[in-house]
């Protein structure tokens, strides 16, 4: 069962930027795209653990600041020739507020 909680205002995240949410599972990066869509992914690149929240957002993808891996924000899949997967979390925007699913972020045991 999903349990949506209010994280922040959409305006707290700059367009084509990201902010971090601390969880028991590690940091989750919440991205805002140029089209004001919001995605939540683990803040670690599958390659060498680079901080994706500090990467450049383009379209619905982010480029890792360490080695330029391109990660799809929708699926968490590494794009192009690279292979890897970032965990993604449900996120939505309602009335200008960003909601994340607490049941996924808080209670899930680390894999």
């Amino acid at each position: 069962m999903s349990d949506w909680i209010d994280i922040a205002a959409l305006s707290d995240i700059p367009r084509r930027g990201a902010r971090v949410v601390k969880t028991h599972l590690g940091c989750v990066a919440v991205f805002r795209t140029g089209a004001d869509d919001v995605f939540a992914l683990n803040n670690a690149c599958p390659h060498k653990g680079g901080p994706l929240s500090e990467g450049i957002v383009h379209g619905n993808a982010v480029t890792c600041p360490l080695h330029n891996w391109v990660i799809s924000l929708e699926t968490g899949q590494a794009q192009g020739a690279d292979e890897g997967q970032v965990a993604t979390y449900p996120a939505q925007v309602k009335e200008g507020r960003i909601l994340l699913d607490k049941s996924v972020l808080v209670s899930r045991t680390p894999a």
């Binding site: 601390k22 607490k102 972020l105 808080v106």
Partner: peptide, 15 residues
């Protein structure tokens, strides 16, 4: 403030 974590769910008790 805009460079700090926007929220800290680690403070919430795990269910």
């Amino acid at each position: 403030q805009s460079y700090r974590p926007v929220a800290d769910l680690a403070l919430e008790a795990a269910e």
